[in-house]
């Protein structure tokens, strides 16, 4: 009788301990999923968003250079029309491939923390040569006043070219990128330590490895869901098309950039889904081996 009572008490204690450990495991598993999501977002920011290649890729795929060149041509035409000079003078002066090269050089200079110095001499020389050739064909129009106007006009066109080369808001983006490095270091350190700690506690709490792996699988699956839902909704609804930024070419680039970032997060989500499958299968394998070993040892 007393032995029965003892056995029942032991069972109750074991069951209570088991429930507590399950509850704690669920909590830790949830915490692990949140930490994994945070870690993933930090990694996407550092290794995708703030990378030079991401910017250059978005610029290419949104036809930014072509549109920027068209805008530049419109602006220099507007500046030229009232002067009386023919638009044909500008034909060989501003070229799309040169604009693209200068824009890429500007972005690279910023990313590598070098000052960007635009080479104005080439454009100035070409413009001056075109205008002088045109004026030579007219009746002699000379004078200091005319030289002054020509220089003012050339300076105006150079300002328009500079505006076309410099990607809007890139300076602010680089400042944010610089500030983010500290956040990234601290964030990553915290997330990695938390992940290690939680996994160790889960292993200790559950005793059996396959049970711990079960909770880790819940976390990775939850991370996959949390990371995947927002980009999927964004890409399906295409609400990024309602963005209205100025200038128009910049709007196209930002839209493309947002789509690329959503794609990167989706890839992370898919990675977690695959990891979850691996963990689940590993857990099953371990459990199967344990059962096999138990059966062998019994009989």
């Amino acid at each position: 009788m007393e032995e029965n009572k003892k056995n029942i008490n032991i069972k109750i204690r074991k069951t209570t301990r088991r429930h507590i450990s399950d509850f704690l495991s669920v909590l830790l598993s949830f915490l692990l999923s949140m930490v994994l999501v945070g870690l993933s977002l930090l990694m996407v920011l550092q290794y995708y968003c703030f990378q030079e290649n991401a910017i250059l890729r978005a610029l290419s795929s949104s036809n930014y250079y072509k549109n920027s060149y068209t805008e530049l041509v419109n602006r220099v035409t507007t500046a030229t029309l009232p002067t009386g000079l023919p638009i044909e003078l500008l034909q060989e002066v501003f070229r799309q491939d040169e604009l693209e090269e200068d824009t890429v050089a500007y972005i690279e200079a910023l990313f590598h923390d070098k000052g960007y110095l635009q080479d104005d001499v080439k454009i100035k020389t070409k413009l001056k040569a075109s205008i002088d050739a045109f004026l030579d064909r007219q009746d002699g129009i000379e004078g200091i006043q005319l030289d002054k106007r020509i220089n003012e006009y050339i300076d105006l066109l150079l300002i328009e070219y500079k505006k076309a080369v410099r990607l809007p808001l890139l300076d602010y983006f680089m400042k944010i990128r610089k500030e983010y490095q500290i956040i990234h270091f601290l964030g990553m350190s915290f997330c990695v330590s938390m992940i290690v700690l939680i996994i160790i506690i889960l292993l200790k709490l559950n005793g059996w490895l396959h049970r711990s792996l079960r909770y880790i699988a819940y976390s990775t699956l939850a991370s996959a869901l949390m990371l995947g839902v927002v980009p999927i909704l964004l890409l399906m609804s295409k609400s990024y098309n309602r963005l209205h930024l100025s200038p128009e070419v910049f709007n196209g680039f930002i839209t493309r950039y947002i789509v690329d970032i959503a794609g990167a997060i989706l890839k992370m989500s898919a990675g977690y889904a695959i990891l979850s499958i691996v963990i689940i299968l590993t857990g099953k394998g371990i459990k199967a081996n344990l059962i096999k070993f138990y059966k062998l040892s019994k009989g």
Partner: peptide
Amino acid sequence: MAYFVMPFLYMLLGYTLI
């Protein structure tokens, strides 16, 4: 079922906290 329900519940709870 737990492999579906638990992650879904974590997701709901996570978004609520965010």
